[in-house]
Design a protein around this nucleic acid. Structure first.
Lengths: 161, 161
DNA sequence: ATGGACCTTTCCACGATGGGAAGGTCAAGG
DNA sequence: CCTTGACCTTCCCATCGTGGAAAGGTCCAT
């Protein structure tokens, strides 16, 4: 990569990033995609994105397509998709003959998982709010919140009547 | 610990757990508290709970108070409290002269954090549901969900008119 | 005395992210 | 030409809470 020169290439020519193809180093790709350089490298090591070409100085070089893939990942992360799902979404995205049904199924699965987590958190919140309501919340030490956390007191006689 | 014997103790006496004090090894404490043995050891290493006494064979020995503390932690975890908050809750619990106001403040802070996370997840969920609604979800490949993830297409002229 | 259930420590892994060190490279300006 | 500062590279470590597994010691019942 990095251009096929007809004359003998100078050192600068070899190490520079080719503006012809809109290639840029990782920092710029990070800014353009909203994904940190750290994460871009990480996504590469776990195989979420394909390794990009390197400059003569071993710098990663990103073209517009690579940057768009990173942006795709970034937005997917922001919507809470797991790495695993993102990997599948990326595959669908790049598959010209995908069915939108497959994409929708993934999205709805994620919605379901989000709803599950929301319900869990709401259950926690409601439980805490419930006991907190009954806590006078003043200088006194007795506290239904701590009683709730302590759990059912162990019957001293072992439960026998 | 493990009893002060008046006569010369036999080896069995030294290694056995004292039933007088209701002391038990970690497995039983785990069953009794609902916290895994693994986690009990972890809580000890991070200083969340005080190291318990050991038998002559170096086995951890839990009494009723220790088990109740573990149960307290387990229930707090189940309500989503962070280790840090649990540490403060434990301190309040064991503080005879606490103010219930302090407990309530912690609880309400946690409620606020839960609400924040719930709102985040709900935002994600709503965004996905919104685009998913517009996806026909059939054999065709064009898909507003992927369009959303892809993000705003880069203007080919760089945004200039 | 043997076997199986238990205990001990230590190390590794996850998912996703950040921090930092040590060393190479690039571009601009003196 | 050389320096400087911004950038790149790899590698290691930490997070948080949990689990798994290895390697070795103990306990108890048969």
């Amino acid at each position: 990569m990095f251009q096929a020169m007809s004359a003998a290439p100078t050192r600068a020519d070899l190490t520079k990033f080719a503006p012809i193809q809109d290639e840029c180093p990782i920092g710029e790709a990070a800014r353009a995609s909203g994904v940190s350089a750290k994460m871009i490298r990480y996504y590469e090591t776990i195989g979420l994105v394909r390794p990009v070409t390197r400059s003569a100085a071993n710098y990663r070089s990103y073209d517009a397509a690579a940057i768009q893939a990173l942006r795709f990942i970034g937005r997917s992360r922001a919507l809470g998709f797991s790495m695993d799902m993102i990997s599948r979404l990326l595959a669908l995205w790049q598959d010209k003959v995908r069915s939108s049904a497959d994409v929708k199924a993934l999205a709805l699965q994620h919605v379901g998982e989000l709803q599950e987590r929301i319900a869990e958190l709401q259950t926690m919140k409601a439980a805490i709010e419930h006991v907190a309501e009954q806590c006078h919340g003043d200088h006194r030490s007795d506290c239904p919140i701590l009683d709730e956390l302590k759990g059912p007191s162990l019957a001293p006689n072992g439960g026998r009547p």
